[in-house]
Design a protein around this nucleic acid. Structure first.
Lengths: 216, 216
DNA sequence: GACAACTTAGACCATCGGTCTAATCTTATA
DNA sequence: TATAAGATTAGACCGATGGTCTAAGTTGTC
């Protein structure tokens, strides 16, 4: 009983690591994952870049998926610090959608200011394996999302005739495609057109989620 | 100039191959791709199953992606023979959406009758690499799709305020998520509920694509 | 039968993610 | 301060992957 039982899983060891050393591994990993995707990224190449031996890396990380997860988790926190989510307790559908719009706008601003972060985010679509690697943080996101949906349903802002996981999948799907499209086409767009489409996209999501007999 | 200049690319050689021999390679490949996805499928394992040497396979196929593409192409033809697309020349939005619904129904029936085919279809979502491997047939599909969209726009069945590739991405995305959801949840569903959701899904797609001031 | 083209087998390659062991470095206690 | 115990590190090694290459076998033609 020397210290505190000591850390005996890679994850705990990584968490207890000095920030600079953690960065020594996670920075090159983030760059590689963001640019090559989960599957395309080479572990060996990351380690070479990090100047780190395999034994060392695998002492702090269980496998490739675990490393990816650690990288995303860190990036996720970075994003959340930028967004600083404010209170969210709408009483009417109008308020609900205003708050959602507000949130989306801040999200977009935050992502636009950090290309690596948004590329990393997009890497989740890369493959099923990437999604599985993030199943834990993603399920946390999903819980959060479901709370919003339930709240929205409570105040009549969101339809109740679709199973919420199906609705969620659809909304995420649409969001994903819009994100993808903007990522590839933004540069070719006039500013005004971009803003119009942005607003339109949100309306689209709203029209999907709202009860059928729309309130406007 | 012995024969006809002979086939000097793997693709042409494969196309000229006797059907049974083609099947000897493509059948095991289809099974593997459908069950393991593009990335998860093992080429070596396919060849073992097919009783075919590497040299032989690579004589008829350029690489893994090319094999996947050949498999999908063949499956695609199989699907189309089942669907037997009828004429499609609606004059009004109502007719347009009736025809679309008709098509979707036949598509669903065809897919339900061929589990391997639908699993193979779903394998496209497996990874970006899978999608890239099918870029050629997919772009043909896209052209077809765009013709429908243009026709729909002409007769006022489809909105014109969204770039058609964005609209297409969104519709595909929604379709994909619905397909996925049904693939995992169908068994748990009551028959009547399944039918209700099915109809609702189509309505959803329609509401996304229709001009904003809906006609009904 | 000879020559050329087509076809096939499978050894071989670099790279992949991952494992394992032996060495080293740290720390705590006697 | 010596030593034992634990934490950490290096990197050889592993099986499997997709892909290449060459030498042999097969086929068709004159």
């Amino acid at each position: 009983m020397a210290k505190e039982k000591s850390k005996d899983t890679p994850q705990l060891r990584l968490k207890a690591l000095a920030p600079e050393k953690k960065a020594q591994l996670l920075d090159p990993a983030e760059k590689e994952f963001a640019s090559k995707g989960f599957i395309g990224a080479s572990l060996n190449s990351i380690l070479r870049e990090a100047g780190m031996s395999k034994g060392q890396a695998y002492y702090y990380v269980e496998n490739k998926a675990d490393l990816y997860s650690a990288v995303c988790e860190r990036a996720f926190h970075r994003l959340f610090k930028k967004i600083e989510t404010s209170e969210f307790s709408p009483q009417t559908p109008e308020e609900f959608w205003r708050d959602i719009q507000n949130f989306c706008e801040r999200l977009i601003v935050a992502l636009n200011g950090d290309e690596t972060l948004s590329a990393l985010g997009r890497s989740v679509y890369d493959s099923k394996q990437a999604e599985e690697a993030l199943s834990e943080p993603l399920s946390r996101l999903q819980i959060q999302f479901n709370q919003w949906v339930e709240l929205g349903q409570l105040i009549g802002a969101i339809r109740k005739d679709i199973p919420s996981d199906l609705l969620q999948a659809i909304l995420f799907g649409v969001f994903k495609e819009i994100d993808r499209w903007f990522a590839t086409n933004l540069s070719k767009l006039e500013n005004s057109e971009a803003m119009r489409l942005n607003a339109l996209s949100l309306e689209l999501l709203r029209s999907l989620a709202e009860p059928k007999q729309a309130s406007n």
